[in-house]
């Protein structure tokens, strides 16, 4: 469904992606792990067209991703994104955040959009927070509203950019619980994460990225339990046993 072929991306003189080739099948959950600055988030941002890429090709169901092409709107309505810092619209209530895309981008009828918006908030356990503004919500609640907002576009896939990194540890579970439910329902997901437990339990495949290249990839449990590459082994040792 999502294809990346030899994708290169530089910021100034720094080459962040040095030829990424990967694919994500429909219904698959792929976790992208790796050290900070390795290019994980940049991959997601390129898939969604928030960043342009210099070389190679990214396509979604055959539609080439090009940041400045008119097709980018269609791509973004098919592939939603959930951000590390939630990025909810603070001047709108939780429900208004959720219906914003369906109402103004997809031009859905108002009653229908609101009805589905309420159902989505209920689905992420926040039915009673529909009329609350984001600053009055906890980080975990905000992230769940952000997931509902992404789902409201009825996307074919969702990209998660370190969705739990900005949360208090005790709130991480709620967000991961919602994501696990989505995965169980067959949603195609690409998740940049440091949550190795989530990757092991929920992901079908894991990509380990370092220095802008995919160092190792494979089935989640195999890669996380028995990494083959020395760099992957070193990374996982440091992450899983920091002391």
């Amino acid at each position: 469904m999502i294809e990346l072929s030899d994708v290169h991306k530089s910021f100034g003189n720094v080459e962040v992606l040095k030829g990424i080739t990967a694919s994500v099948q429909k219904g698959e959950v792929v976790c992208v792990i790796g050290p900070s600055g390795s290019g994980k988030s940049t991959i997601l941002r390129c898939i969604n067209g928030l960043e342009s890429y210099d070389r190679g090709e990214i396509s979604i169901e055959g539609l080439k991703v090009h940041r400045d092409a008119p097709t980018i709107v269609e791509i973004r309505t098919q592939v939603s994104m959930v951000f590390q810092r939630f990025n909810l619209f603070p001047h709108r209530t939780a429900l208004e955040n959720v219906v914003e895309g369906p109402l103004f981008v997809k031009q859905e009828p108002r009653a229908e959009a609101y009805e589905r918006g309420r159902a989505l908030l209920a689905r992420v356990g926040l039915a009673e927070k529909a009329d609350v503004h984001p600053p009055q919500l906890s980080g975990g609640q905000q992230q769940r509203v952000a997931i509902a907002r992404a789902l409201a576009m009825q996307p074919k896939a969702i990209l998660f950019d370190e969705p739990t990194s900005a949360l208090d540890p005790e709130l991480v579970g709620d967000v991961l619980g919602v994501m696990r439910k989505l995965a169980d329902e067959g949603m195609t997901m690409v998740v940049v994460t440091h949550e190795m437990g989530f990757a092991r339990d929920v992901a079908d495949r894991v990509l380990f990225i370092d220095g802008g290249v995919i160092v190792e990839q494979g089935p989640a449990k195999a890669l996380l339990n028995q990494p083959q590459h020395p760099r992957t082994q070193d990374f996982l040792r440091r992450v899983l046993h920091p002391l």
């Binding site: 309505t77 994104m81 576009m153």
Partner: peptide, 16 residues
């Protein structure tokens, strides 16, 4: 900037 990216990520164009 995250606000603009969030808007773009749900398919909003510049004017919207």
């Amino acid at each position: 900037k995250g606000q603009i990216e969030a808007a773009q990520s749900i398919g909003m164009g510049w004017w919207l």
